[in-house]
Simulated assay, not measured.
Amino acid sequence: MTKILVLGGGYTGVAAAIRTARGTRRTGGKVTLVNASPRFTERLRLHQTAAGESLPDHSLDEVLAGTGVVFVRGRVAELDPGRHEVRLDDGRVLGYDKLIYALGTLTDASVPGVTEHAYTYADHEQAVRLAERLDALDTGTVIVAGGGLTGVESAAELAEARPRLRVVLLTRGRPGAMMGDRARAYLDAALDRLGVEVRTGADIAKVLPGAVELAGGELIHSDVTLWTTGTRGLPVAARSGLALDARDRIVVDSALRSVSHPDVYAVGDAAAVGLPFGVLHGTCQGGIPTGLHAADSLAATLRGRKPKPFRFGYVHQPISLGRGDAVIQFTRPDDSPRRWYLKGRAAVRYKETVSSSPFPTFRLLKRGLVPVGMFALTAGRG
Rank of each mutant, 00 (worst) to 15 (best):
P289I: 05
L302H: 09
G278D: 02
P307Q: 10
A238Q: 15
R249C: 05
R311V: 05
S258H: 08
C284N: 07
L256I: 13
Y314S: 02
R311T: 06
P262Q: 12
T283V: 03
G274V: 00
L321H: 08
A299T: 12
R311S: 02
T301R: 11
P289N: 02
G274Y: 05
H293T: 06
R311H: 01
P289M: 01
A295F: 07
P276T: 01
G268Y: 15
Q329V: 14
P276C: 06
H316Q: 10
A266H: 14
A271Y: 13
H261A: 09
V251I: 12
P276F: 08
F277E: 04
G282W: 09
L302G: 10
G278M: 02
S297A: 10
A299Y: 02
L244M: 12
A295R: 03
F310P: 02
T331F: 11
G304R: 07
F310R: 07
D325P: 04
R311M: 04
A246H: 11
S260D: 14
A266L: 15
A271P: 08
G268T: 06
Y314D: 04
S258V: 12
D253A: 01
D248P: 01
A300T: 09
Q317S: 05
C284S: 08
D263N: 04
P289R: 01
A243Y: 01
A271M: 15
G287F: 11
G278H: 07
P307G: 13
G286T: 02
G278E: 06
I328L: 09
H316E: 13
L275C: 00
F312V: 00
R323P: 07
V315R: 08
P307R: 14
P307E: 11
D248I: 00
F330H: 13
S297K: 03
P262S: 08
R303W: 00
L280T: 02
G241P: 15
S297Y: 10
D269F: 06
D245L: 11
K306E: 15
F277L: 04
A266D: 13
R249M: 07
S320E: 05
A326W: 00
A272V: 12
F330G: 12
R247P: 00
A294V: 10
K306G: 01
V267A: 12
L321I: 09
S258E: 13
A272R: 06
A294Y: 12
H281V: 04
S320K: 05
G286S: 00
G322E: 09
R323D: 14
S254H: 03
Y314N: 03
A272Q: 14
A300I: 03
A246W: 11
G286A: 09
G291W: 10
A255V: 09
T290H: 04
P276Q: 01
R239Y: 13
R323F: 02
S254Q: 12
V252H: 09
T301F: 02
D263H: 15
I288W: 00
R323E: 10
G282C: 05
S240T: 14
T283C: 03
A237M: 14
I250L: 09
L275S: 02
A271H: 12
K308T: 07
D248H: 15
